[in-house]
């Protein structure tokens, strides 16, 4: 299979506080893969994801996305690349005071004419698409509510709808279910799974729980203190590997 992302010797140092968040990380993600990032909090998962679309500037190393070097892209090229990499977040990151529909439509911003979008004017087709995306995540009736009136699970669905609007090749999810209860978590994970299987979207998601990773992940990449400590299939993670990733005192818990 073809590589979608190739990461080579990626280093990120946060100047403030002198934190070495990523230390020489190299890996590849294949097209259509469902990759799960594991690791304790502070291990560098969010940093890795944000380096891929350069929300965070890497300190050193290269990231190649579909044959194009993200790290060397001009700001215009970068915006074009970002259109193809959607992202959802632990805290949903919706614009709380805007309507649900506007939030979904903003997934389209990279494609539309900036002048038209400046006066909040979207094409009829875009609005129809946005409604279709909301229907797909099961909340079309919420379209005209303010985003902060929705429950956490519903907000994350809006996040997914916003990602769908981008018609992405890659979906990055930074602990998408950590702020949700277990039942809602599974329904959100199933949307990711569906996007992966039906729309051929490559998914890279960080998760807190190994049980979720085992259930949804095709491949697992575990980070510890900014370094890769494990790379392989979920089945390969035994007791020993688990302690290596999470530390000696950790116990595995099940999320049903």
């Amino acid at each position: 299979m073809e590589d979608l992302i190739r990461i080579e010797n990626l280093v990120k140092i946060y100047e403030r506080g002198e934190v070495l968040a990523l230390n020489d990380v190299s890996t590849t993600v294949q097209k259509g893969e469902f990759l799960v990032l594991l690791g304790l909090s502070g291990s560098g998962k969010s940093t890795l994801l944000r380096c891929i679309n350069r929300l965070i500037e890497p300190t050193a190393g290269t990231i190649v996305f579909d044959g194009k070097d993200v790290t060397k892209a001009s700001s215009r090229q970068l915006r074009h690349l970002r259109r193809r990499m959607a992202m959802i977040f632990q805290q949903f990151n919706l614009v709380k005071r805007s309507s649900v529909l506007t939030n979904v439509l903003s997934g389209r911003l990279g494609y539309v004419n900036p002048a038209a979008s400046a006066i909040h004017k979207f094409a009829k087709q875009d609005i129809a698409d946005a409604m279709a995306c909301l229907e797909r995540v099961g909340i079309p009736e919420q379209a005209y509510k303010r985003a902060d009136e929705l429950s956490g699970g519903q907000q994350q669905r809006v996040g997914i709808a916003r990602a769908l609007m981008q018609q992405p090749d890659l979906l990055m999810a930074d602990e998408p279910v950590s702020a949700l209860d277990p039942a809602t978590a599974h329904s959100i994970m199933q949307y990711l799974e569906q996007m992966n299987q039906e729309d051929d979207v490559t998914v890279v998601t960080s998760l807190h729980f190994l049980s979720l990773a085992r259930r949804y992940g095709a491949r697992i990449l575990a980070l510890k203190d900014g370094e890769i400590v494990f790379e392989g299939s979920p089945a390969e993670i035994d007791k020993v590997k688990f302690k290596e990733i999470y530390g000696e005192d950790a116990e595995e818990v099940e999320v049903r």
Binding site: M87, N93, V95, A118, H120
Partner: peptide, 22 residues
């Protein structure tokens, strides 16, 4: 809240769109 701003930026929006929408 920097979260929404980051999210809009991640969609490939330009700086002016980030200001407008985020």
């Amino acid at each position: 809240d920097p979260g929404p701003v980051e999210a809009i930026r991640a969609t490939g929006a330009s700086q002016s769109q980030v200001i407008m929408y985020g």
